[in-house]
């Protein structure tokens, strides 16, 4: 079972306590954007086989949203971090690099 550390309440939460929220760090597009931008924002997804940055909610715990870095091929979790950021913090990137040298995900690496 997948276990993620909630960065807000500090609990190591089981998968059953959590709700997955899909790909993280999406760039939002609002009124006035082109059809192409809307399509990318609403439906285009990285869907990588490997490092994935994603949103989770500690639904049956503190209720807070947070971010996780996880490998979709092995389910290895590289770390979790605050939802109040627009890109993965340095220590998360380092933790991923230590396990997956040369990784990249969108413009991050």
């Amino acid at each position: 079972m997948l276990i993620l550390h909630c960065p807000y309440c500090g609990v190591d939460a089981d998968e059953t306590e959590l709700a997955a929220g899909g790909e993280a760090h999406l760039k939002r597009f609002g009124p006035g954007s082109s059809d192409e931008e809307f399509e990318g924002y609403l439906f285009g997804r990285e869907n990588p086989r490997g490092v994935h940055l994603e949103r989770w909610r500690h639904a049956h715990g503190c209720g807070k949203w947070f971010h996780a870095a996880r490998c979709t091929a092995t389910l290895e979790v590289f770390g979790t971090y605050s939802a109040q950021v627009t890109e993965p913090p340095a220590e998360i990137r380092e933790a991923i690099t230590a396990k997956r040298p040369g990784w990249s995900w969108r413009e991050f690496s």
Binding site: M1, L2, E15, E23, E54, R70, T72, A73, T74, L75
Partner: peptide, 13 residues
């Protein structure tokens, strides 16, 4: 499963 993965295994719960 509720989250992206390629494990061909699935969550027990």
């Amino acid at each position: 499963d509720g989250f992206n993965n390629y494990t061909q295994r699935g969550s027990f719960h």
